[in-house]
Design a protein around this nucleic acid. Structure first.
Lengths: 336, 336
DNA sequence: GTTCGTTTTGCACGCGCTTGCAAATATGCC
DNA sequence: GGCATATTTGCAAGCGCGTGCAAAACGAAC
């Protein structure tokens, strides 16, 4: 076990010739310290390399400054982009991000939240999976703030941030029809999360209104490989679709690659494709994918505002925010 | 300010009808508690939703369990893959990852390390940038472990993990020559980090040995857009290169896209390309890129082993580990 | 039942910090 | 200078926990 090596406020106090309280107050904004002692304390602290122990401070203040991010598949483009935005904005708000990786196993998210409790995180942001009700209750009861992003669960006291998935599905259906597509299809993962299903339902509903039926295929995860498989399944059908909405950009990339390289199809002439997320690769000229942009900056700022912001406002009321996904028009759909 | 809401060991003790020490000991592996009291404590803890306060525990044990990850550009494929591996392995080792995002501004890494000190992190892993010597000194003096990944700095007491960049450059030069390439080029970022420069120097040296000269161009960051610009510069030269080693996969993707879609070149027939990192996109059929795989799993496990492992072994000795990047052969280079 | 050795248990202290309170010091005004 | 008021300062308590130490409980052997 490492011995006590970090320099403490005590040592700074001795060197500066003041009391330990004075040191503490110097590093507490708004506390009452004279300019002179403050200067002496700062000098001593600088010389000794003193930094306030946030563990101890958190103990006293009952506020650790830690925010726990709970995520799976962090290596995925959309996830890592959101994570980046979140950590940056948390830092700007004076918080620090703690990171817990989850997998698909049972109770993985619950264990992550327990970790958040152990470190007395001020808040947790859940990007993947859905925790058990009992444990979110415990979090809330413990005064922890909870943000659920793209999760659909009714937990009073939490902040839910969602997109207009259903409407987006509708908008892209219209775009396909305008481009002259006759046979629409929806390529989905079998994960059946609320956001994915929202896109699917919105797409189907709008297509029906426009007098078209939609072929739906669901397979695997939301990644590139699944997109390839979905293309193989869909493009070998008797009636080959000519307008495909993929539930995510990664699916779309896989789909396009298979369509072009295995089936020799030309996009957008013979096949129109759209995705969702606007990951960086969507803008690459190999894909040039029309897609919906996740408003990651807005998502992050809403989340951070809620959890860093006012303490007492409306603690009981279930907050829910719906943000708009912007349609980014590129070359994978013919101009109407 | 939130009031005290988290349940404490005291409350558990009262409910279980034992002393607070008994509670503490129940959650301390190897401590002396009878089976009976342990059971009663666990029951009470479960009922109350008690979780040990790691902030307070860290204070006592002088070991927070926190490991600080210092990264910039986390949304980048290679970075997020490494991050994923690190967080997973840290979790398995019973540590928790704290995340600090840096930018390119001066002192950004230093501020990140200060954050690590404030939270009394047991260790910090630096993936980007290079901290000031004075602050790494402070970290080490405070008993913090330091891991530098792909940074080249001589800091005694830290663990450095690097790749055989120079040798990789040599290996790929040989491959190009075997594929019949006559005009070699190296597409680099202007970041001039040790790893990037190592690849460049190794490539040039090997090419010279093989009797070929190398055109070097450096521009921008290590991303896709820079790759496009580099392609524009290189492919308009009087003597157009037919074998290009790009310092990263993202550069290679941009380079290939520009080569194909702007210059109408066919890969690998008219142009051979290689990259470095083996990001997921390298395996996509649009790129099918021959590249070197970063051994992210090995990097992470070495890092975690060092910082979680033995405390007293060789604290002074500067450790340095060089791992081998495996050449992943795909279709962007002709078979020799 | 007594003795001795072995757990088990509770007490009390301290980790590094914040903060209410009262004493000490500075400031303003006549 | 004298007084009232405002500011600064140190003391001490306490945040939730781990742990050394001695007392208590237990178990075995006679």
């Amino acid at each position: 076990m490492p011995s006590k090596l970090f320099v403490s406020a005590q040592e700074v106090a001795e060197r500066a010739g003041v009391s330990r309280s004075a040191v503490s107050r110097t590093f507490t904004p708004g506390a009452s310290v004279s300019a002179d002692t403050r200067r002496r304390v700062l000098e001593a602290a600088e010389a000794l390399g003193y930094h306030v122990n946030h563990l101890a401070r958190g103990l006293m203040r009952n506020e650790s400054g830690i925010v726990c991010l709970i995520v799976s598949d962090v290596a995925t483009p959309y996830r890592s982009a959101l994570l980046r935005e979140l950590t940056i904005q948390l830092q700007n708000a004076g918080k620090v991000a703690m990171f817990v990786n989850t997998d698909r196993s049972d109770g993985s998210v619950d264990r992550a939240l327990q970790q958040a409790i152990r470190y007395r995180a001020d808040a947790s942001i859940i990007l993947s999976g859905l925790p058990d009700k009992s444990i979110t209750q415990l979090c809330l009861r413990s005064g922890q703030r909870l943000v659920l992003i793209n999760r659909d669960d009714d937990q009073p006291g939490t902040l839910k941030i969602n997109l207009d998935d259903y409407e987006s599905g509708g908008r892209i259906a219209t775009a396909f029809v305008r481009a002259g597509c006759r046979t629409l299809a929806f390529a989905n993962s079998e994960a059946r999360t609320p956001s994915l299903m929202g896109r699917e339902r919105g797409f189907i509903a709008a297509a029906e209104t426009l007098g078209l039926e939609v072929v739906v295929e669901r397979y695997g995860s939301t990644g590139y490989e699944a997109g390839r498989v979905l293309a193989q399944r869909m493009l070998t059908r008797a009636e080959r679709p000519d307008g495909v909405f993929c539930a995510t950009d990664l699916l779309a990339c896989g789909f396009m690659d298979a369509a072009r390289h295995q089936f020799g199809l030309s996009i957008p002439d013979q096949l129109c494709v759209a995705g969702f997320d606007d990951i960086e690769q969507a803008s690459w000229s190999s894909f040039d994918l029309t897609t919906f942009a996740q408003p990651v900056t807005a998502i992050a700022s809403q989340a951070v505002k809620w959890l860093a912001g006012g303490r007492e406002d409306e603690p009981e009321e279930a907050h829910s925010i719906t943000l708009k996904a912007e349609l980014i028009w590129r070359g994978s759909i013919r101009k109407g």
